[in-house]
Design a binder for these strands. Structure first.
Lengths: 347, 347
DNA sequence: ACTCCAAAGTTAAACGTTTAACAAACTTCA
DNA sequence: TGAAGTTTGTTAAACGTTTAACTTTGGAGT
């Protein structure tokens, strides 16, 4: 198999200079007569010419490459892409980006590292960063000169465009929903409550709803560890076994809610008959879970698409620096399914 | 903020030529005295120098970039990354690749397109391709000059390294498992049976098990459409409603099995009391499903890691062309959980 | 004192593009 | 007629690296 054709080959084949070829390649056909343009296109077709983005990146200083950073599990180095919440977002980001001619580099970031390296090594045109990272990470992120969209982060300052949901309100919504149905002893099971993370806000919303209903906030009722099915399961078992007074739980992620429900069942109680459970996210599995999960819904696909669009908007503007960094919030709503039931009035 | 430092800046700062810098960058320190090497390293640190992979790619003809191609839904352009089967694999591929200093470009491929474009545009060092594509796709794939690993594909010929499972055997295993438990009217619900695809093989295994047990193969019992929860749901409902004689179903993917089970319940029957269901894949959700899914297990994480390793092996050998294209099969086993029960002997 | 070699550097071409600057050949039109 | 444009093209530098080929210096061996 022969070597790939370069722009020089095309130029020679068409009997013109490489500049002419480059012009038609870049849609500057007004620099070239219709006939030669046709000749050049013919040559391109004939030689199966495909431009080299590396070379292009070098001179244009734009790689048509977007970094997508997603968190990884603490123990292993794996991406937590297994959580459908992330994969659904990535899938939507990818499709939107590809539509506009960008490719996507998917990467986790090693503990203590920044994504500065990736960004400059690869000359990224932009990055979408999901989840929350150590303080240090964001400090270095500000050095990065490219447009960045943060998903689900509460880092403040004018540096980044952010897309997320009103997590405090979401937490409030979920908790109030339970309270309105007569529950008063409500457990919170959640991933680790880190500063500026989404779960911190949801936690705040939980407390606000409690306060508003004059329910005493009991720290024993918050089960905080990691956002995983496994932890939900543990917490669920513990709740069902050791806290007969708890009648409802708010899990800050659907994935956790699933675990909680399983744990409760394992301990010999029923959902929602003995204990009600509400989740957060509405991943597509929640619909199909048995019983279908009542949860705080966010439109995950939209979230991904919006993030991609906001990023493109900045990248493709003429003055990327001038564009102001927005914060967009995807709306939240409760979707009622079958894991919450009103508390029977005591007879 | 100042412009990024280039190798020239480093050279100037250290008072040497760019060649010297390049040598220490590439671990050819024997070309340089220990003192200058140290001076250069100092300069690199001082200027926060990070090499540009585009430039490197241009001259080395290697981009340290691996393409990961995953199928997309037929209707929308989205990746079917939502299926945890794929995300679990991608996650493992990414971590293995990053460990060796490669980055990963995640992409779907548009209908009718090949991934030749991507490959040469980006100067990919290799590609991992999951799932099955039109005939045409593979024809073009052979033109691509880079090492390629196919996951779950039965395209034959010596061009590609393949990793997968023995799907025929898996289909056989699942079906035999049901038969051994007294079931004789066994439905198959599956994605579309395409030539050289995994489901075709599983289908073959299904038929072999039937034949071996002298059970008449009834085409009415195969429900073929798409590998999705939604279709499984439809099929499950149909089976429960219109085929009272069917006592077991083999779903060729766990995701489909979930749908089938829901559909069966929707139609007022119980799993496994009325109808048994066995799946395929053992995605991590299967453990947590209610009831936990009996299924044919493959080690998905291993599959991803192996694919990555096989690819690296070829890429990093001195004679990539000389290395022979292997086919590795991940072992299969039945994991018994709670969706299959032996048929009660008729009383 | 001579040759030969190793060590430590440097020079410059090459990789595949883009694009500013220039050049030639035509048009217009006063 | 000729000044001023316009159209269509070319030249060559630049982007940030790597690396083959060359140069200089200083010993070692005879």
């Amino acid at each position: 198999m022969k070597k790939r054709a370069t722009i020089k080959d095309v130029a020679k084949y068409a009997g013109v200079s490489t500049a002419a070829v480059s012009y038609v390649l870049n849609g500057k056909e007004y620099r070239v007569s219709p006939d030669t343009a046709e000749k050049i296109r013919e040559a391109i077709r004939e030689l199966n010419y495909i431009p080299d983005y590396s070379a292009r990146s070098l001179v244009k200083n734009s790689s048509k490459l977007i970094g997508v950073i997603i968190p990884q599990t603490e123990d292993s180095k794996q991406l937590i892409l297994e959580n459908p919440f992330y994969s659904e977002m990535v899938s939507n980001i990818e499709s939107r980006l590809r539509e506009s001619g960008y490719h996507l580099i998917l990467s986790g970031v090693d503990k203590g590292e920044s994504c500065l390296d990736l960004s400059v090594q690869r000359n990224l045109d932009g990055a979408i960063i999901m989840g929350i990272y150590p303080e240090q990470f964001y400090a270095e992120l500000k050095q990065v000169e490219i447009p960045i969209v943060l998903i689900d982060s509460y880092i403040n300052g004018p540096w980044f465009t952010k897309v997320g949901v009103d997590d405090e309100y979401g937490g409030y919504l979920a908790t109030r929903y339970l309270i309105e149905r007569g529950h008063r002893n409500i457990a919170l099971v959640t991933g680790s409550i880190r500063k500026d993370g989404v779960v911190e806000k949801r936690f705040l919303g939980y407390k606000r709803a409690l306060r508003e209903a004059d329910i005493f906030y009991n720290p024993d009722y918050v089960f905080e560890h990691s956002v995983s099915y496994a932890y939900g399961y543990e917490a669920g078992k513990a709740i069902a076994a050791k806290h007969p007074e708890i009648t409802a739980v708010f899990a800050t992620a659907d994935m956790v809610a699933f675990g909680v429900i399983q744990g409760i069942k394992e301990a010999g109680k029923e959902v929602p008959d003995d204990i009600s459970v509400i989740g957060f996210d509405d991943i597509f599995l929640s619909r199909m879970f048995v019983p279908p999960l009542t949860t705080v819904r966010q439109d995950i696909a939209l979230k991904g698409k919006r993030a991609a669009e906001l990023l493109l908007e900045i990248i493709e503007s003429d003055e990327p620096d001038k564009i102001d960094r927005k914060e967009v919030a995807i709306p939240l709503s409760i979707v009622e399914r079958q894991t919450v039931r009103p508390l029977k009035p005591r007879s």
